[in-house]
Computed example of a mutant assay.
Amino acid sequence: MSGPNTNYDPVETTPLQVEALEQMVAEAKAAFAQAVTVADLKAARIAHTGDRSPLALANREIGALPPQARKEAGQRIGKARGEVNQALKVRDEEVRAAELQRVLVEERIDVSLPTEIQPRGAVHPITGLMDRMGEVFVAMGWEVAEGPEAEAEWVNFDALNIHPDHPARQMQDTLYLEPLETNTLLRTHTSPVQMRTMLDREVPIYIVCPGKVYRADELDATHVPVFHQIEGLCVDKGITFAHLRGTLEHLAKAMFGEVRTRMRPNYFPFTEPSAEVDLECFVCHGESVGNPDRPCRTCNSEGWIEWGGCGVVNPRVLRAAGIDPEVYSGFAFGMGIERTLMFRNDAADMRDMVEGDIRFSRSLMGGAR
């Protein structure tokens, strides 16, 4: 029986030759030296130390060698890999240090400059407009009054001369709170604040009442179930309709600039006589009236836009509050804040006012006239 054959040709495959391995190591070092960012170095690392790198492929050739030659070839491969990994480690430290220094320079923050920890918000246009309208009256010596939004039915309706059969008292318009026996509702206007003021204070009274009101309306471009009103009340000796007209003209000019107003006879249970207040159309200024060649969508070519209601306080309302109508008289008015905002800023859709988009608030408050 013959023994193992110890005579073999020690010629190795080309990738395992000393010159080839030295070339692989030199190429790897050159690639590492050229990398200037962490991302570049990562690509070089994968190319020269990954599973498909020249050294990894050369390592697979060891299996084709005779057993006696594998040890020496494995040592050469291991030495080459160690040299490459050491070069990679040194270059990685250099690249990371350089990149950190670059970031510190490029992204330097001047801590002495003013900054905003939180993004800037914006006052909602409704809130801002209520404040502005209130300031107009405060400047005239009036007071801003407030009241509860959940109101007693008597204060919201009966005390204001709105009889029990009035359509506004039906469930389809008014939101009543349970249990219904308490006769409590979400106020349908801010007039209850006026009544509460007359009940609680001595005359003379000069107040303006901004706030939320509630109606059973569908949400659409021109209606919202929760909206805002501002109402005013003046009760004193010798108050006439002329005082009312002058007050509203002053408010209109403060809100819209030089604009004409007019009053049309109307009916409200809590005022007598009563009127609707109209503004001259700020788009066509009346030029569209009777002119089919220049129609105006804003006023429907009528030349005027309805703004709100007003009138002399009904004597029955004064008596309900314990005020003698033979001695005192007064006037009251009210208009919608949303409607005023639409006039001032050309806002077309009321739904934009309730969606909470800060871009809407910034655009209106920044562009308010």
Rank of each mutant, 00 (worst) to 15 (best):
N161L: 07
V123L: 15
M335C: 12
S2N: 11
V36Q: 13
L177V: 12
L41T: 04
E306T: 08
W142G: 03
V226P: 00
V38G: 04
F268K: 01
G232L: 02
F282C: 02
R91C: 03
E94I: 14
R260H: 07
K79I: 13
V105G: 01
W142Y: 14
P210K: 06
D9Y: 03
E258M: 00
I126S: 00
Y176K: 05
A254R: 12
T174M: 14
A98D: 07
H223N: 12
I162K: 00
T6F: 13
Q68I: 14
I77W: 03
K29Y: 01
K42F: 03
D217N: 12
D324H: 08
A348N: 12
M171L: 15
A159E: 01
R120I: 13
D357C: 08
R201Y: 06
Q118H: 15
M130E: 15
P164V: 15
P325G: 11
L180M: 06
E153Y: 13
W154A: 12
E326L: 03
I62A: 10
R245G: 03
T6G: 05
E135V: 06
I46W: 02
P265A: 11
P15T: 09
A30S: 13
T174N: 10
H250D: 06
S2K: 15
A20E: 08
P204G: 08
L100A: 14
E287G: 04
L199E: 07
R344V: 13
R187Q: 04
E151Q: 06
H166V: 11
A73E: 02
G50R: 05
E287Y: 00
G3E: 11
Y214W: 06
P292C: 10
A168D: 09
F137I: 07
R351M: 10
I46P: 00
P269F: 07
D236A: 07
A39Y: 03
P273M: 10
F32Q: 13
P179E: 11
S112V: 00
E338F: 07
G128H: 13
A20W: 10
Y8V: 15
D110T: 07
F270M: 08
T247N: 05
R369L: 15
G366Q: 12
L88P: 00
P265G: 08
P192K: 01
P192T: 05
F360P: 00
N156D: 05
E272D: 13
Y328R: 02
C310F: 04
E27D: 15
G322L: 12
E302T: 13
E72C: 02
T174C: 07
T240R: 03
G257W: 11
T174G: 11
G366M: 04
V224K: 00
A47F: 02
A98R: 15
V136D: 03
V155H: 00
R339L: 14
N266D: 13
G309L: 04
R264L: 09
L185C: 07
L177N: 03
G290M: 11
N156C: 09
G290I: 06
L279Y: 05
T14I: 09
A26P: 02
T127Q: 14
L279D: 00
Y328P: 01
E61A: 13
R91I: 02
V312Q: 12
G311K: 02
C234Q: 07
G290P: 06
F343Y: 05
A321T: 03
R187T: 06
A150M: 14
T247S: 15
I230C: 03
F270R: 07
V213Q: 07
R215P: 05
V327L: 11
V36F: 08
